[in-house]
């Protein structure tokens, strides 16, 4: 019983993180039809910036225990900084090759990813040593069931991820810019003929995706407290799993990404807890293969016939 509850809790915690990151992949894919490989590096940037802001804040305020607003402030700062970074990446790297064959864009994305990884390794950036983020949320236990502790930190993590997803849902389906996004995703050419400012919509997509990535990085840092250097394999793996979540849920579909993230998180945790812990990654990528074979569009995706 303890183990079931613990696994459920861990699955939701990691799944909501995957979902948050998967949203960025899926939004960019929905609109530009390409996979932004640099997305996971924006997550890393978000984690490291959270660390820097948290340290600065700790030094300035000299808190003993973090005040309640510390986490929120760091989150907002990191999201703003990464939104700016996402805007710059789109403007400098992707916009100049808009309309180029898809392969060029894909290779550019890999280039951006490598650039961010190697920049981050420089000593004047973040360096190569793992670092520890100061505690931003009081890690008090809310309640305990059996041997399973539910802490404020767990609640804050899952709560933030859920709030951001609900916010995005509202933005995409109930605002003008959201309608623009859906229109561009449907057909860029038609949308532009109808007067949708395509460039602004694309920029906004990157800004929102990167802000969500930053939130993912922030929550990651909060959850694991140790942040590894930017080129560490664990980041690649995190990015890949979030990408798998987007594909499993149906790439291009915002709700699908959330569902996919939770599915991947649960599968990973339950697989490790009840089957073999040595095959955690096998479960995740096995699911990807199964989905691609049985339902290539993803759980919530529509089957699309490619016109050649």
């Amino acid at each position: 019983m303890d183990q079931l509850l613990q696994t459920l809790k861990d699955g939701i915690a990691i799944g909501s993180l995957y979902a948050l990151i998967a949203l960025g992949y899926t939004m960019v894919y929905g609109i530009l039809k390409f996979i932004n490989f640099a997305h996971s590096d924006v997550v890393v940037l978000g984690a490291w910036l959270s660390l820097l802001f948290a340290r600065k804040l700790e030094a300035v305020t000299g808190w003993g225990a973090p005040p309640w607003w510390a986490g929120a402030l760091v989150l907002i700062l990191a999201m703003a900084a990464c939104a700016l970074a996402g805007f710059c990446i789109e403007r400098l790297a992707y916009k100049p090759i808009r309309g180029a064959p898809r392969l060029n864009v894909l290779i550019t994305a890999i280039g951006v990813s490598l650039f961010l990884q190697n920049m981050g390794q420089q000593e004047w950036m973040f360096g190569t040593r793992p670092a520890n983020i100061p505690a931003l949320v009081n890690d008090a236990t809310l309640f305990t069931v059996g041997r399973v502790n539910f802490t404020l930190l767990d609640a804050a993590g899952v709560g933030t991820a859920l709030a951001l997803m609900v916010g995005l849902e509202w933005l995409v389906f109930h605002t003008k810019i959201g309608r623009g996004m859906r229109a561009v995703s449907h057909s860029t050419a038609t949308a532009s003929l109808m007067g949708v400012p395509v460039n602004r919509v694309i920029s906004t997509t990157f800004v929102i995706g990167s802000a969500l990535a930053a939130a993912g990085g922030f929550l990651w840092a909060l959850k694991y407290s140790q942040i590894k250097q930017t080129a560490d394999t664990s980041w690649t793996l995190l990015g890949l799993k979030a990408f798998v979540a987007a594909v499993v849920g149906g790439i291009g579909n915002v709700r699908g990404a959330m569902l996919g993230g939770l599915a991947i998180g649960m599968l990973e945790m339950f697989g490790a807890a009840y089957l073999w812990s040595s095959m955690t990654d096998v479960y995740v990528f096995g699911l990807l293969i199964a989905v691609l074979l049985l339902r290539p569009g993803g759980i919530l995706g529509k089957a699309v016939v490619e016109k050649v």
Binding site: D10, W220, S234, L237, S277, S278
Partner: peptide
């Protein structure tokens, strides 16, 4: 219990 380099979450293994 086993993990693979790059893993960050060890909760499942540790719970077992």
């Amino acid at each position: 219990q086993a993990y693979t380099q790059g893993a960050s979450d060890f909760n499942a293994q540790l719970t077992r």
